[in-house]
Design a binder for these strands. Sequence first.
DNA 1: ACCTGAACACCGTTCAAGT
DNA 2: ACCTGAACACCGTTCAAGT
Lengths: 208, 208
Amino acid sequence: MYNVLTREAILDAALELADERGLGAVSMRAVAQRVGVTAMALYPYVGSKEALLDGLVDRLLASVLPDTVGDGDWRERLRQGGQAARALARRHPSTYPLLLSRPAVTPDAVRVVDWIYSLLLEAGVPPREVPRLERLLSTFVLGYATSEVNGRFSEGTLNPRARRAQLPADQVPAHRRLAKWLDDPVDWDAEFEADMDDLIRLIERAAA
Amino acid sequence: MYNVLTREAILDAALELADERGLGAVSMRAVAQRVGVTAMALYPYVGSKEALLDGLVDRLLASVLPDTVGDGDWRERLRQGGQAARALARRHPSTYPLLLSRPAVTPDAVRVVDWIYSLLLEAGVPPREVPRLERLLSTFVLGYATSEVNGRFSEGTLNPRARRAQLPADQVPAHRRLAKWLDDPVDWDAEFEADMDDLIRLIERAAA
DNA sequence: ACCTGAACACCGTTCAAGT
DNA sequence: ACCTGAACACCGTTCAAGT
C-alpha cells in the first residue's frame, strides 16, 4: 500500500461511506478525508460530484455482472438475475436507487442489458419486442428492489390498522374488504418469486 | 392576497421551484424567499427539509386522485390511471422520483392504493393476491415514469450505435442480433400502452 | 505533475432577540 | 404569536500557490 491515489480508490471510499453513513454523508470533503487527501485533489480523477455518483452506479453494475453468467434455461437465469439485483440493493441500499435515475450507457451497463436481451431471444420473444420487454423487466426489478430498501412497501403495510385508521372506512372500501389479508405479515422473498413467475408467463405469452 | 403564510403556500412555492429549477434548487432559503420570508420562518409550518419533501410527495398524490375516479370497466380505468401517472411525471419531473423512495402512508396515498385494490377486486383477482398485484402494478408504473423523466431509457437507446461502439461486438452478441430494431426510434406512448396490455393479461390470468 | 490553502457562494438548523 | 439576525458547522468548486 503505497497510498497511490486512483479513481478506483476514490470510488471504493465513496461506496463505503454511502454504505456506512448514507448517501448524504458522501461529500467531496468526506471522501477525500477517507483517502487521506483534500477535497480538491479528487477533481482530476472524478471530475465533479455528479460524475462521482455516476461512477458509483457503474460500480454497482460491475458487481452484478459476475452473477449474470448463470446456468440452466432462461427461466432459471432470469430468476437468478432478479435475486442478484435484490441482493445488490440490500448490500448498497443508499446507492441502489441511483440505478433508476441515471442512464445505462457505460460498458458494464450495456453488458447487463445484453444479458437480458439474450435471455429474451432464447425464450423465443420476437426480436422486435425484445427491447420493450427488457425495459419492462429491468424497470420492475429495479423499482421493486428500490421500493424495498426505501421502505415504500413495509412502512405502510406492516401497520395496516394504523393506515386505515387515518381515513373513514367508507372512503377506503377495498381496504375494508381486504382487512383479513392486509393484517398478515408479508414474505417478501416469496412475493418477489411470485412476481417473477408472473413475468415469466408474460414473456412466454409474448414468445407464443 | 394578504400574504398569509401557510403550510399550503410554502408547499406551493417549493413545488414551483422544483418544477422550474430542479430539486437541487429547493433550499429552505430559496423557498422562504419565494414566499417573502426568512428560512427560519418556515420551520413551524414544515418541521424540516425532509418533512417538506414528504409534503411535496403528498401534493403529487393528491393531484392524481381526481384522475382516479374514471369510468368504464377496470381495464379502461387502469389504462387511465397509468396515463395519469405518466402525465404527472412529465409535469413534475424533479419531484416525481421521490414517489419511489417515500412510503405511501398519508391519507391521499392510501386512497390511491384503495383505488387500485378496488380495480383488482373488480377484475376478479383473489383477495389474497390483491396486495401483491397492487405492488407489482404501482412499482412498474412508478418505475417506468421515473425512468422516462430521468432519461434512463432514452439517453442510451437514442444512440444505439454509439452504445455498441463502446464494446467489441462479440461481447454484446444480442445487441448485434437486434441491431435492425435498436436503430428504430421508440414511440414511448405506444410502448407504455403495450406494457399495460401485457399487465392486464397478467391480471386476467391471476383472476382465472 | 500533483496536491494544498484560502476563498466564494452557498447549505440546514439552533437560538436569542425583536415586535 | 410570529418572525428575524447572527451564528455554527457544513457544502461544491475555482484558482493561485506551493513542492
